[in-house]
Amino acid sequence: TIDEIIKALEQAVKDNKPIQVGNYTVTSADEAEKLAKKLKKEY
């Protein structure tokens, strides 16, 4: 679900690790936030 994706992003940001979500690779908190907002609009 979208919530699980967002939790995974938040965890990756805390661990400061890049995370791959679908076609996106998120490497920073800023990118994670942008991706989360984008995904919320889509779903």
Rank of each mutant, 00 (worst) to 15 (best):
T1F: 12
T1V: 06
T1D: 10
T1Y: 13
D3C: 15
E4N: 07
I5P: 01
I5R: 02
I5Y: 04
I5K: 01
I6Q: 02
I6T: 02
I6Y: 02
I6N: 01
K7C: 08
K7Q: 10
K7E: 10
K7H: 11
K7W: 07
A8E: 05
A8Q: 10
L9S: 00
L9R: 00
L9K: 00
E10L: 12
E10P: 00
E10M: 13
E10C: 13
E10I: 11
E10Q: 10
Q11A: 08
A12I: 10
V13I: 14
V13T: 06
V13G: 05
K14M: 09
K14H: 10
D15F: 07
N16W: 13
N16A: 08
N16M: 07
N16S: 05
K17R: 13
K17Y: 15
K17H: 09
K17S: 05
K17N: 06
P18C: 15
P18N: 03
P18W: 09
I19E: 01
I19N: 01
Q20H: 10
Q20L: 09
Q20F: 09
V21D: 06
V21A: 02
N23T: 04
N23A: 07
N23R: 05
N23Q: 12
Y24P: 07
Y24L: 15
Y24W: 12
T25M: 11
T25Q: 14
V26S: 04
V26D: 07
T27E: 13
T27G: 11
T27V: 10
T27R: 03
S28D: 13
S28W: 03
A29Q: 06
A29F: 05
A29L: 07
A29M: 08
D30P: 03
E31A: 05
E31G: 02
E31M: 06
A32W: 05
A32T: 01
A32D: 01
A32N: 00
E33F: 06
E33R: 12
E33H: 08
K34P: 00
K34C: 15
L35N: 01
L35R: 00
L35H: 01
A36M: 15
A36N: 02
K37P: 01
K37S: 12
K37M: 09
K37I: 13
K37R: 13
K38T: 07
K38M: 13
K38G: 05
L39M: 03
L39A: 01
K40W: 10
K41F: 11
K41C: 12
E42I: 14
E42N: 06
Y43P: 05
Y43A: 13
Y43H: 11
Y43N: 13
Y43L: 14
